[in-house]
């Protein structure tokens, strides 16, 4: 199972990076792949590529503020939580993401439609969404 994630906190000096490290370590321990983009005081680092997002089974957003490029994830199962939760209990969050992928549990309402109907039309929309985001950059 593969995950991608984003961490971001208001000052972007410490917690953004602690949360990223915590998620990376927990995923490694549990035997999953993860790449975590940090949106902190140094801007966006370890930026997720369109391919990485497309091939991820679920998205983990550990954010205390609005992030840039949130629309990249539309149509994917998203687990959203606060930065401090990721620092405090990263293993539980990875486990929750695994459950989200396996059973479709805890999917936020705005993602439900994208999950339930995996038809051509939806996939097309998803691609448009990604390209739209690319163009904005």
């Amino acid at each position: 199972m593969k995950f991608v994630g984003v961490t971001a906190c208001p000052t972007g000096i410490a917690h953004t990076y602690m949360a990223a490290e915590a998620l990376e370590e927990a995923a490694k321990e549990l035997g999953y792949e993860i790449k975590v983009e940090t949106q902190g005081s140094m801007g966006i680092e370890n930026e997720l590529t369109i391919e990485e997002i497309a091939s991820a089974d679920a998205i983990i957003l550990a954010v205390d503020m609005s992030i840039s490029g949130a629309d990249r994830f539309s149509g994917k199962p998203v687990l959203k939580l606060g930065v401090s939760e990721a620092i405090k209990n990263p293993s539980a969050i990875i486990a929750q993401a695994v459950r989200l992928v396996e059973k479709g549990e805890d999917i936020p309402e705005d993602n439900l439609s994208g999950e339930e109907t995996q038809n051509e039309e939806k996939n097309e929309e998803k691609r448009k969404g990604l390209f739209g985001w690319l163009k904005q950059k």
Partner: peptide, 26 residues
Amino acid sequence: FLIAVPEDTDNQHLKILATLSRMLIH
């Protein structure tokens, strides 16, 4: 750890703080 950073700090300082933050997870 009490961190003090000037408003116009350069990225190298921030990078070190990021590294320190990451280390604390271990």
